[in-house]
Amino acid sequence: MIDAELRKTAELARLNLSDEEHERLRGEVENVLSYFDSMAAAEAAQGGATAYAVDDNPSEAGGNGAAAAQARSVSQLRPDRIRTESIAETLLESAGDVEDRFIAIPNVL
């Protein structure tokens, strides 16, 4: 991976990397990415993508046969029910500094 790509990626990930970190992580990122490249050889000739271990639409996701049947068997919709449940108060209590129902944070301007 060239330096510019790693800088751009760190920028997107909102991480500041020191020069020392940049050097060290570049090696590791390159290592792992070249390992990821081994997936190319194993590229699926057929089938779609699985985004979730239990898929709501296995047929659309390209699964078929037993796998799709299995996925359907564990994928269920729950009935609509009215619930009232909130831990908002508890969460507010754990905030460092509260004004009314707002969490106060330092000025960042």
């Binding site: 194993a42 590229e43 699926a44 993508a49 390209g62 046969g65």
Partner: peptide
């Protein structure tokens, strides 16, 4: 995207 497709293949292989 490639990993997602291979994930499907792994699921099918296990089934």
């Amino acid at each position: 995207a490639r990993a997602q497709r291979l994930r499907t293949r792994i699921t099918n292989e296990l089934a």
